[in-house]
Design a binder for these strands. Structure first.
Length: 830
RNA sequence: GCGAGAGUGGCGGAAUUGGUAGACGCGCUGGUCUUAGGAACCAGUAUCUAUGAUGUGUGGGUUCGAGUCCCUCCUCUCGCACCA
C-alpha cells in the first residue's frame, strides 16, 4: 500500500492550511531586503482601517495582491509586499465611548484579530514591516514632516468656516451633517469661524495635473476624475471699478469673448467687498437680510437639488473697462465665494445661469457672439447660447471669431492694465485640522509673544495623552486637557499653549507606502537608500472610492517629500488597479441590508484557498463581484477534483510501453500544457484577468482527465501527465498556495512551488496541427472542416467547393466571389 | 446638467487585428453507482413554429462578414455637480 492510498478521500484543508502557514511563518519565506543584483517589485494593497473584522472586500483586495506578489516572485523579482493599519479615526472614539474602553485598546485589539484573519488567508506579507499609524513610532515622523513642510510654506493656518455642533462641542465633517443637523444629537449645526491648518496642495496643482499624463498604468477613469477635481480653467482676470469708490471688483472668466455682453455683475454673499458696497446705503438692511437667508438655505441645502437662482440689487454700479458701461451689482446665491474671485461678470446671452437670473429680474440680454449661420433675438431667446461664434456689438473686436477674440481681448486688457491672462483651479488647499482625540497631534505651539512656533524636532513626538476618563464616556479632544495644552514656548521660554487639533487621518495614509521601505528607521522618517531601492510602488491595488482623495493626497505628499529631499521620485504609484465592490443580491454588502458574508465562516467551511479561488474566478478584478454561495462550492469542488486526480495518480505502474510517450494523447496533452502556460501568463501580465487564467487551468485539468482514462484507447504517459500536473500546480500556486504546496509534496516533486520559476512555453508545441475552418455561404456558417494547420488558400478554397453542405447552399447559383482567410474561414458569395 | 464606463443564455462571465457568439464555472435535465445523496462520475443544456430560422439593449449604416467599426435612441452604474 502506497502512502497516497492512505490519504483521506477529501482534501483536508484545515490541517493542510494551518501546517503550511506555520511553515511559512517559521521560515519567514516572505521577508525581503534590498538586493541590487535583483530587479525589485513593490506590490501594495490599500491598508485597512482596523474596524474589527475583515470583510469580503478585504478578502478580494488582498487575494488579488497576493497573486501578484507570488506571481512576481516566481518571475524572479525581489518582491516587497507589506501590510499595516490605518489606525487613527473616529470609529475608535465612538467604540470607546460605547464599550467603555480606550480607543487605543480597541484599535490594537482589532489589529490583533484582523492580523490573525489575514494570516489565515495565507497572504504572503513581510510581517516584519508591519506598522500601525496610531503608533508614535509612526506619527512622530509625520509630525517631523509636518514641521518641515511648515518651514517650506506648505503648511499654514487660517480662519475657516466649519460645521459646529454646540451640544457635542465639536466640528463635524460634511458627511456628519444631515439636513443641517448633527448626526448624533440632532442639534442644529451652526457655521463657525475657526482657525484651521492647511496643506498648500494648490502649489502643486499644475504638476499634479500635468503628471497625470505620465501615469500610463492608471485607469483612464481615475486620471479623468483627478483631472476634473483639479479643474483647471484658463481665461481672463479683469477689474471692474466700483462707481464712486476706489475699489474694484475682480472677476475671472473663461469667455473673455463675451465681455461686451456683460449686463450686470453677481457677487457671492461672502464677497470681501460687500461691506464696501453696502455700508451706510439705503439698501444695506435689505441686502444683509438677503445674505442671511441664503446662507441659512445653503446649510440646509440638499445636495441633489439645484437651488432656484436668487439675488438682490446692491444699489451700486461698476464699470466695464472695455466699453465704460455702467453695470448694476447684485448679490446672487449661485456665486461661490471659494471659486475664482467670488464675483462673476454676468453675460445672460451666453451663460445659462446668468440668463435665468436676467429673465427673473428683468435685466437686459445682449448677444455678442453669433453661432455660425444664426442670429440671436434677445427678446425671444429661451436659453443662453454657449457655443463659439463670431463677435458682434463688441467694438473693435467685431467680426472676429471667438478664439481669435479671446486672445485679442486678453492682450487689450493687459495693454491697458486692467486685466491679464489667468489660470484658475477648482482644487483648494487641504484642511487637515480635526478637533478629535484619536489622531496625530499637530506639533505646534502658540505663544503670546512669538506667535506660532513649531515643537523642536528633538522633542518629538508630541504624544497623545494616554490617560482617559473613559468611564465618563468621554474621549475628550485635546482642547479640553489643560495638562496637555500647557507648555513653554521653545523660542522665548514663556508659558505657551500647545495646538490641540489633530490631523486628518488621510495624512497618515499619504506616505505609509514610503515608510514600508524602512519601517524601523529610528533616526529619519525615510531612509534614502531603502526608499530609493523600493519606490515607486509598482502595483497599487484598492477600491475606486479612493480615486480622488487618498490617491491625490499621496501624489501631493510624494512631490512635497521629493522637494524636501527625502525622495527621488515624482509619483508614488506606477500602476494602479481599482478593484470592484463585492456585492450580493445586487447590492453592496452591508449590515443594514443584511447581506454580509463573513470571511471567517467561509474559511471555516471551505478553507482559505477556496475563498481566494472563488473571489478571483467569479469576475475580473476591476468589475464588481457578485457573491454566490454555489459558486464557492464550485471552486471547492474544483480543488477536490484536482486532489483526487493527484491522490489517484500512480506514476509508477502506468508507465508502460503501451502508453508510449509519443502517443496522440501525449501530443494533445503536451500541446494543451503549453497553450495553458501561454494563456495564463498573458492573462496575468496584460490585465490581471485571473478569471480567464483560472478557466484556462480548468481546461487543462479537463484535458488531463480525458487522457488519463483507461477506458479510452489513447492514454498519455506518465512523463507527460507528470509535466501537466506540475504545470497546474505552479500556475495555480499564486492563487491557492496551501493547496499547491501540499499537492506538490504528495506528488513528490522536489523543492517547493515557491522555489520554482514560472514555466515558459514553446510556440511550436502550442500550435494546433489541425484547424477547424468555417465554411460560409453569403456570410452564414454552413459547414466546418478540419484541415492541416498550414494549408494554403488554394487548398482551402478547393475543399470548400467540394463540401456537400456548401454545395447544397450554393445550389447551382453563380459564385460571385470567394474570400479565403487562412486558418479561419472560407466565405463563398453567390 | 457635465464627464467616464457598461448593456451578451436561467446566473457569474468568455470571445488578438471585424472572421466558429456563449470558453470556464454555477444552475438545470437525464443517467450510473449507492441504504440514501444535498457525494462522485457520465451525457445534455441560447431560443423557436426546428432538414430550417432567429439570436450580443433599440433602430439604422459600412462590409463578403459586425458582440467588435460609424450614427440614432433607450437603460443602468460611477464620478462631479450653480466652477463663471
Amino acid at each position: 500500500m502506497t502512502e497516497r492510498e492512505q490519504l483521506p478521500g477529501k482534501y483536508d484543508f484545515k490541517a493542510v492550511e494551518a501546517r503550511w502557514q506555520h511553515t511559512w511563518e517559521r521560515e519567514e519565506v516572505d521577508r525581503v531586503t534590498e538586493d541590487d543584483s535583483r530587479e525589485k517589485y513593490y506590490v501594495l494593497e490599500m491598508f485597512p482601517y482596523p474596524s474589527g473584522r475583515i470583510h469580503m472586500g478585504h478578502v478580494r483586495n488582498y487575494s488579488i495582491g497576493d497573486v501578484v506578489a507570488r506571481y512576481m516572485r516566481l518571475r524572479g523579482f525581489n518582491v516587497l509586499h507589506p501590510m499595516g493599519w490605518d489606525a487613527f479615526g473616529l470609529p475608535a472614539e465612538n467604540a470607546a465611548q460605547k464599550n467603555n474602553t480606550h480607543p487605543a485598546r480597541w484599535t490594537y485589539d482589532n489589529i490583533d484579530y484582523m492580523r490573525s484573519q489575514l494570516k489565515q488567508l495565507g497572504l504572503s506579507y513581510d510581517w516584519s514591516r508591519e506598522l500601525a499609524t496610531c503608533d508614535d513610532t509612526y506619527y512622530r515622523w509625520e509630525q517631523k514632516l509636518f514641521i518641515e513642510m511648515y518651514r517650506e510654506g506648505l503648511v499654514y493656518q487660517r480662519k475657516t468656516t466649519v460645521n459646529w455642533c454646540e451640544t457635542c462641542q465639536t466640528v463635524l465633517a460634511n458627511e456628519q451633517v444631515i439636513d443641517g443637523a448633527c448626526w448624533r444629537c440632532d442639534e442644529q449645526v451652526t457655521p463657525r469661524n475657526m482657525n484651521g491648518w492647511f496643506f498648500r496642495i494648490t502649489r502643486y496643482a499644475e504638476e499634479l495635473l500635468a503628471d497625470l499624463k505620465s501615469l500610463e498604468g492608471w485607469p483612464e477613469k481615475v486620471a479623468t476624475m483627478q483631472s476634473n477635481w483639479i479643474g483647471k480653467s484658463t481665461g481672463l482676470s479683469c477689474d471692474f471699478k466700483i462707481e464712486n469708490s476706489e475699489e474694484s471688483i475682480s472677476i475671472f472668466t473663461t469667455r473673455p469673448d463675451t465681455i461686451y455682453g456683460v449686463t450686470f455683475m453677481s457677487v457671492a454673499a461672502e464677497h470681501p467687498l460687500i461691506d464696501e458696497l453696502i455700508n451706510g446705503t439705503e439698501t444695506e438692511q435689505a441686502v444683509r437680510a438677503f445674505i442671511k437667508t441664503i446662507s441659512e438655505e445653503r446649510l440646509r441645502q440638499n445636495i441633489e437639488e439645484e437651488q432656484e437662482k436668487k439675488g438682490i440689487f446692491t444699489g451700486r454700479y461698476c464699470i466695464n473697462p472695455f466699453n465704460a458701461q455702467r453695470i448694476p451689482v447684485y448679490v446672487a446665491n449661485f456665486v461661490l465665494a471659494e471659486y475664482g474671485t467670488g464675483a462673476v461678470m454676468a453675460v445672460p446671452a451666453h451663460d445659462q445661469r446668468d440668463f435665468e437670473f436676467a429673465r427673473k429680474y428683468l435685466l437686459p440680454v445682449l448677444p455678442v457672439v453669433l453661432p455660425e449661420g444664426m442670429t440671436l433675438d434677445p427678446e425671444t431667446m429661451e436659453e443662453a447660447s454657449t457655443v463659439y461664434g463670431t463677435l458682434v456689438n463688441s467694438g473693435q473686436f467685431d467680426s472676429m471669431d471667438s478664439a481669435e477674440a479671446q486672445a485679442a481681448i486678453i492682450a487689450h486688457a493687459e495693454q491697458h492694465g486692467f486685466g491679464s491672462a489667468h489660470i484658475t483651479y477648482r482644487l483648494r488647499d487641504w484642511g487637515i485640522s480635526r478637533q478629535r482625540y484619536w489622531g496625530a497631534p499637530i506639533p505646534m505651539i502658540h505663544c503670546r509673544s512669538c506667535g506660532v512656533v513649531p515643537v523642536p524636532l528633538d522633542e518629538l513626538p508630541v504624544k497623545l495623552p494616554e490617560d482617559l476618563n473613559t468611564r465618563a464616556g468621554e474621549c475628550a479632544p485635546l482642547g479640553k486637557r489643560a495638562e496637555f495644552i500647557r507648555t513653554t514656548c521653545p523660542s522665548c521660554g514663556e508659558e505657551a499653549a500647545r495646538e490641540t487639533d489633530t490631523m486628518d487621518t488621510f495624512v497618515e495614509s499619504s506616505w505609509y507606502f514610503a515608510r514600508f521601505t524602512c519601517p524601523d528607521a529610528t533616526d529619519t522618517p525615510l531612509n534614502k537608500e531603502q526608499s530609493h531601492y523600493w519606490l515607486p510602488v509598482d502595483q497599487y491595488i484598492g477600491g475606486v472610492e479612493h480615486a480622488i482623495l487618498h490617491l491625490l493626497y499621496s501624489r501631493f505628499f510624494v512631490k512635497a517629500l521629493r522637494d524636501l529631499g527625502y525622495l527621488d521620485i515624482d509619483e508614488p504609484f506606477a500602476n494602479l488597479l481599482t478593484q470592484g465592490m463585492v456585492i450580493k443580491d445586487g447590492a453592496k454588502m452591508s449590515k443594514s441590508k443584511g447581506n454580509v458574508v463573513d470571511p471567517d465562516d467561509l474559511i471555516r467551511k471551505y478553507g482559505a484557498d477556496t475563498v481566494r479561488l472563488f473571489s478571483l474566478f467569479a469576475a475580473p478584478p476591476e468589475r464588481d463581484l457578485e457573491w454566490n454561495a454555489q459558486g464557492v462550492e464550485g471552486a471547492n469542488r474544483f480543488l477536490n477534483k484536482v486532489y483526487r486526480l493527484i491522490v489517484g495518480f500512480n506514476g509508477d505502474t502506468s508507465s508502460t510501453a503501451e502508453n508510449g510517450y509519443d502517443s496522440e494523447a501525449d501530443r494533445v496533452l503536451e500541446r494543451k500544457v503549453h497553450q495553458t502556460i501561454k494563456k495564463v501568463t498573458h492573462d496575468i501580465d496584460s490585465n490581471f484577468h485571473f478569471n480567464t487564467a483560472i478557466s484556462a487551468v480548468m481546461e487543462l485539468f479537463n484535458t488531463i482527465v480525458s487522457v488519463s482514462d483507461p477506458e479510452k484507447n489513447s492514454m498519455a504517459g506518465t512523463d507527460t501527465l507528470n509535466h501537466a500536473i506540475r504545470t497546474i500546480l505552479i500556475l495555480l500556486f499564486p492563487m491557492v498556495p496551501h493547496f499547491c504546496s501540499e499537492m506538490w509534496t504528495i506528488m513528490n516533486f522536489t523543492g517547493r512551488p515557491e522555489e520554482q520559476t514560472w514555466p515558459s512555453y514553446n510556440e511550436e508545441i502550442a500550435r494546433e496541427e489541425l484547424l477547424t475552418i468555417v465554411l460560409q455561404v453569403n456570410g452564414k456558417v454552413r459547414s466546418r472542416i478540419q484541415v492541416e494547420a498550414d494549408s494554403d488558400e488554394q487548398t482551402l478554397e478547393t475543399c470548400a467547393l467540394e463540401d456537400e453542405n456548401v454545395l447544397r447552399f450554393i445550389n447551382g447559383k453563380a459564385v460571385k466571389k470567394i474570400i479565403v482567410i487562412k486558418k479561419k474561414l472560407v466565405n463563398i458569395v453567390v
